[in-house]
Design a protein around this nucleic acid. Sequence first.
DNA 1: AGCAAAGATAAGCACATGGTTATGTTATGA
DNA 2: TCATAACATAACCATGTGCTTATCTTTGCT
Lengths: 297, 297
Amino acid sequence: MNHPLPPLRLLTAFAAVARAGSLQAAAAELNVTQPAISQAVRQLEDHIGLPLLDRGRRPARPTEAGEALATAIHEGLGRIAGTIDAQRLARTRHDATVTVACSVGVATYWLMPRLSALYREQPDLLVNVMTVPSGAPALAEGIDLAIRYGHGRWKDGHVQHLFDEEVMPVCAPKLRARYDAVVSLQSAPLLHVRSAEPSWLTWSDYLLATGLSAVRHEARVFTNYVQATQAAVEGHGVMLGWRSITGALTASGALVTAGLPGLAPRDAFFLVARSKRGGHAIERFTRFLLSNPAGKP
Amino acid sequence: MNHPLPPLRLLTAFAAVARAGSLQAAAAELNVTQPAISQAVRQLEDHIGLPLLDRGRRPARPTEAGEALATAIHEGLGRIAGTIDAQRLARTRHDATVTVACSVGVATYWLMPRLSALYREQPDLLVNVMTVPSGAPALAEGIDLAIRYGHGRWKDGHVQHLFDEEVMPVCAPKLRARYDAVVSLQSAPLLHVRSAEPSWLTWSDYLLATGLSAVRHEARVFTNYVQATQAAVEGHGVMLGWRSITGALTASGALVTAGLPGLAPRDAFFLVARSKRGGHAIERFTRFLLSNPAGKP
DNA sequence: AGCAAAGATAAGCACATGGTTATGTTATGA
DNA sequence: TCATAACATAACCATGTGCTTATCTTTGCT
């Protein structure tokens, strides 16, 4: 650009003349009087040093240079306006999206059922669920919220209590029917889940805490809670059921309590946000989860 | 465009920040203080409702939306500025071009030799020569000037006298050498030029006006003065030479006067322009022709 | 020639703009 | 932690802008 560009008002006024076909029509279109347009076009011509209108004709029509400039204005300003609109749209899209990280088990048995209800209530929200092996996912780049199981004393964000956990033995109804209400840990197979989480309750922890005893035979070990749950549902054995995960299954009858005592761990589930006040969608999603933490989805 | 575009100043200020890499550098580039740029970018963000700079980094860098907008500004405003520059250049080119209409004879023998001199003097001028059969070409579309032969009382433009005409018999030197200084019209072949122009002098006109007599034999008739002139140069006969056309040839010796009286017609050559004041190139070309109408080129 | 539509020009006025200076705030690197 | 560079904010002021109304000029048609 060798010379300063003329003011935008002059450019758009001239483009309106070219498009509308006369100065009067352009003035009407822009809601000003005819002299305003006449002077604007004159100022533009003086600014760039080229005749843009052939005023010997009535209505006045653009010169060849005027035609070329009107086209360039339309395309050039359209490019800018189009980009602004596109970025506004992208931001609107982005504002309605929440990315939440949690474990596979929480995602499968706790969060997904609740998402169904959320989408019925607020269909414009969009929740990306990022599952991680850990029960305490980090607030990594691109993660808006994390659902964590643990002590709750994290410093990397705003922590809100979601719900306490309860652990108790569960199994398939047909397996319990073979024991007359209380399943015997002496004879029934136990389903183990191996986890790297230090807060994870194992069968050993449970037996120690309750004083019960069991015989280690036919033990099945899973590295994934979903698979262990599936084996329990199919009647392969008794597993330690966490209410957050198996709650829905016991509510539907796919699993039943084994008639044995439960444990309430000190650890609980928390919702961790990057800061106390996030985007609009994040606040709406947080509000939904906190108003409906446990129980039926 | 759904919303009014932001002022150009805000757009160019932001584009300068994106390009220069910091607000300080952009301010220096635009010769203003840093707060002016800071406020301009803020106003732009408020105007379009999008964050354009990530101010958490130092120096501040454009957001994704900011990058897209900076690119669009560069391309969109570049499109407009490029068109303005191109049209300015085209006009400059157009301003340096003159289209002049004249007869083939005038073009060949009078104008072209003068154009050589003009281009040596003013090499930036460009003269388009449009030849027509008529000695009084019209000021048609795209014609800036017309060189006409006639009475000069035309109403369709600004008429300026170029030079008077003189008509006298001319022939090749070797033909005149056969007659001892005065060529006899009784025996020498006459070269006729047929023209639709009423002001055109024929051999009949000449004989009547001078009282001389001739014998009509070996008459050669041409519809083109250039061909007749060529025949004369080759010694085929005597022709009525118009100074405007044959002047250069007699000066160079290719043709000589036949030793007979000349005639000065009332008609003359005029330069006709569309209006008294034309473009810059037209005025320069007109000035050149009027300062050097006759004689050697 | 007369008339109406279209455009040009001049002058006036409310208000907006586009900086500036002074100062406060924040990120970054040692 | 401290110093510095980079950016933000507030207030002020000169001037420019963007219209408007009134009136004149020019084109095009009957």
